[in-house]
């Protein structure tokens, strides 16, 4: 019904904008189309009962990571790809063929599978996720924060100008 219709709409929009995101020449359009795709994924999360992840997806990806992309694109003056003459035709054909095979193969396999209806309605509320995060996954949680710190220091070192 309602949710089903929303999913198929979102899936079509997501796939189309993903295609634009990887194929358009203009890097700003690439980033923006990816925002649309990630938004569609967030809606899918909401339909799957993962409401916290849906909000986090928009907050983290659309609100921070892709803004960073846009910032860098604009900082570098929206660089475009080199002209067609310089491109490597074999690389294009092989890459597209491989991706096509992967897509067709996985759809062929998945379409043949019949699974039971989803087990339970495990609602991904902030409270439920929080209990898991600081319970069984506490070590991984702390480890991620160390990773983020390391990434921050690394990024700073990379872009620091030598005086």
């Amino acid at each position: 019904m309602m949710g089903t219709a929303v999913f198929y709409l979102v899936a079509v929009v997501g796939v189309v904008s993903a295609l634009v995101a990887v194929s358009h020449k203009n890097p700003v359009v690439n980033v923006l189309s990816l925002v649309v795709t990630l938004f569609c994924i967030a809606v899918s999360y909401a339909l799957l009962g993962a409401e916290f992840l849906a909000a986090a997806q928009i907050l983290v990806y659309a609100g921070a990571i892709l803004v960073l992309f846009l910032f860098v694109v604009m900082l570098l003056g929206a660089p475009e790809e080199p002209p067609v003459g310089e491109r490597r035709p074999f690389q294009r054909v092989a890459g597209l063929a491989l991706a096509g095979i992967a897509a067709a193969g996985s759809i062929a396999v998945l379409a043949g599978i019949r699974v039971a209806a989803p087990a339970g309605a495990a609602q991904g509320t902030a409270e439920a996720l929080g209990r898991l995060l600081v319970g069984p996954y506490l070590f991984a949680f702390e480890f991620i924060s160390v990773l983020l710190l390391a990434a921050m220091v690394g990024a700073l070192m990379l872009v620091k100008r030598k005086h």
Partner: peptide
């Protein structure tokens, strides 16, 4: 809406696109 203020922060964080796109385009 169970996510409440998180929704507001998430949608509000999209507002930057309007300004950045206006500036770039």
């Amino acid at each position: 809406l169970g996510v409440g203020v998180l929704f507001l922060l998430a949608i509000g964080s999209l507002g930057v696109y309007g300004i950045v796109l206006a500036g770039w385009s």
